[in-house]
């Protein structure tokens, strides 16, 4: 489907070896380098630089309007669809700059999936068709492959037992929490390397929220996740690392601090991080 050749991770070697001292530290699958996003010339996110370790959950936290969603959407080039949006800096996926032209956006998006703030299953499709929609977009036609992928994605999303006997029902018959898990299954079916999640539980009740959080935990050994949340408990429960964002004086979002979740919540180096995680503002 996509004719661009896959670029070897040669560029990765050119970068300084990160954390060579402590050997269990995983490799960085995504590297953000001075990523800025502006809308109609007005900066919404300024110069964000950090690394996302592989097969870990990284939480993006910060008050509303600090640019979390905007930054997340820069990671799968979703801003391409907004004509006023402009992204500068670079985002390296396994060493390849996703804005460099070597990686077609459709291929990128099948490697970097996304789950949205509100569940958005395709209402005209059955549950089954929803789950395999990404594979079909990517050209998979063989029924046995689709069936297999659907089953394993639904199992991974903890939805298989509840939908296995109604795969042909419309997605709309599911509850909000189930719809969100269907969207997660739909993303997983494509077997992405990274899954971006933008406040995936903000439209759900506490029960459904807890199940999604458990799911994130279960998935973390097979897929890298970057999750936006404004819920401090959620960030501390599900993430290994946290990146804290805040609006600057000109209202552009900036990265204040990034580090292991324990450290961000226990002994942050920046006073503003400390104020935020203790609930003093935001």
């Amino acid at each position: 489907m996509v004719d661009q050749p896959e670029v070897a991770s040669a560029t990765l070697d050119a970068l300084p070896p990160a954390a060579a001292s402590s050997e269990p530290e995983p490799e960085s699958i995504l590297m953000l380098r001075k990523v800025s996003v502006s809308f109609s010339g007005k900066l919404a996110v300024r110069d964000v630089t950090f690394d996302v370790p592989e097969k870990r959950v990284t939480a993006l936290i910060g008050p509303s309007g600090s640019g979390k969603t905007t930054l997340l959407r820069a990671l799968n080039r979703l801003h391409d669809t907004v004509s006023s949006a402009r992204v500068t800096g670079s985002v390296l996926l396994n060493g390849t700059d996703i804005y460099g032209g070597a990686l077609h956006p459709t291929l990128l998006r099948s490697r970097v999936g996304m789950v949205f703030q509100r569940p958005n299953p395709f209402p005209a499709m059955s549950i089954y068709d929803n789950v395999v929609s990404g594979l079909r977009f990517n050209g998979v036609r063989k029924k046995s492959l689709l069936d297999e992928a659907a089953e394993s994605a639904l199992i991974a999303a903890a939805l298989w037992e509840s939908v296995r006997n109604r795969m042909t029902a419309r997605a709309g018959v599911l509850s909000g929490g189930e719809q969100q898990r269907l969207c997660i299954a739909r993303s997983l079916a494509v077997e992405p390397e990274v899954l971006l999640m933008d406040e995936p539980t903000s439209a759900l009740d506490p029960q459904a929220t807890r199940r999604i959080e458990e799911l994130i935990d279960e998935l973390s050994d097979r897929v890298t996740m970057v999750i936006v949340t404004h819920n401090m408990q959620q960030a501390s429960r599900v993430s290994h690392r946290c990146a804290f964002m805040l609006m600057g004086d000109d209202r552009a979002g900036e990265l204040i601090e990034v580090g292991p979740t324990d450290q961000i919540f226990g002994s942050p180096t920046d006073q503003r991080t400390s104020d935020y995680v203790q609930g003093r503002f935001g």
Binding site: N76, S110, F116, F137
Partner: peptide, 24 residues
């Protein structure tokens, strides 16, 4: 969200239109 949902799965613009937007 429907359009972005399709794009985020790796759909082309054409696939998004015919398989998601028109059915919706």
């Amino acid at each position: 969200e429907q359009i972005e949902g399709a794009l985020a799965l790796g759909a082309t613009r054409w696939q998004t239109l015919w398989r998601v937007v028109v059915p919706h």
